[in-house]
Amino acid sequence: MPYRRLTTVLGIAAASASALVLATAPAQAAGNVYEAYNSITSPSAMTEFAEDGEILTALDMKKDGHGTAAQWRYNSSSATHSYYNGYGYAVAHDWNLSFAEGTTLQIRACLQDTSDGTPYSCGGWEYAKA
């Protein structure tokens, strides 16, 4: 009888511990966030792509009078999509995009001076996944 009582107590303790772990576990892990910079040594523009929500962000990282451009393209495609952020230093601007789940794309960060200007001083392409 003492053996049976011990196994019952241990069983209840194990079930309680499992319930506690499940109750404190996050519902779902957040998606990946991918980053690209226009320069490795002294970046002045950053592009970010958040897998969860498919949000593209451009951030101006320097008080230099230049705006930034967030660019994306499908994996190794020649068609580049560019989004201008002229809101100024330390102000991020987001765009909500839509891709099929698992789509591979590339992102990069550039400088751009006006909304109808041409992006320049772009960094390298970085891979991201929707």
Results as ranks from 00 to 15, higher is better:
residue 46 M to H: 03
residue 98 S to F: 06
residue 98 S to T: 06
residue 29 A to P: 01
residue 39 S to Q: 13
residue 39 S to H: 10
residue 34 Y to G: 07
residue 57 T to M: 04
residue 116 D to Y: 12
residue 51 E to K: 08
residue 50 A to C: 04
residue 109 A to D: 08
residue 51 E to H: 07
residue 108 R to D: 11
residue 92 A to C: 04
residue 33 V to G: 08
residue 32 N to Y: 13
residue 79 A to M: 02
residue 91 V to H: 05
residue 107 I to Q: 08
residue 82 S to Q: 13
residue 118 T to N: 03
residue 39 S to E: 12
residue 108 R to L: 07
residue 45 A to D: 06
residue 20 L to G: 09
residue 50 A to R: 15
residue 108 R to H: 09
residue 69 A to G: 09
residue 109 A to N: 04
residue 68 T to A: 14
residue 57 T to G: 08
residue 61 M to Q: 11
residue 106 Q to T: 03
residue 50 A to E: 13
residue 93 H to M: 10
residue 102 G to Q: 04
residue 34 Y to W: 12
residue 32 N to H: 12
residue 32 N to F: 12
residue 41 T to D: 15
residue 42 S to T: 15
residue 93 H to N: 09
residue 47 T to V: 03
residue 25 A to G: 03
residue 103 T to H: 10
residue 128 A to M: 06
residue 45 A to L: 01
residue 85 N to G: 00
residue 28 Q to S: 14
residue 121 S to Y: 12
residue 14 A to C: 13
residue 86 G to Y: 05
residue 11 G to C: 08
residue 24 T to I: 14
residue 83 Y to L: 06
residue 58 A to I: 02
residue 80 T to I: 15
residue 67 G to H: 03
residue 50 A to D: 15
residue 51 E to F: 04
residue 12 I to N: 09
residue 22 L to R: 05
residue 76 S to D: 14
residue 79 A to T: 10
residue 24 T to Q: 10
residue 107 I to H: 12
residue 78 S to Q: 06
residue 75 N to T: 00
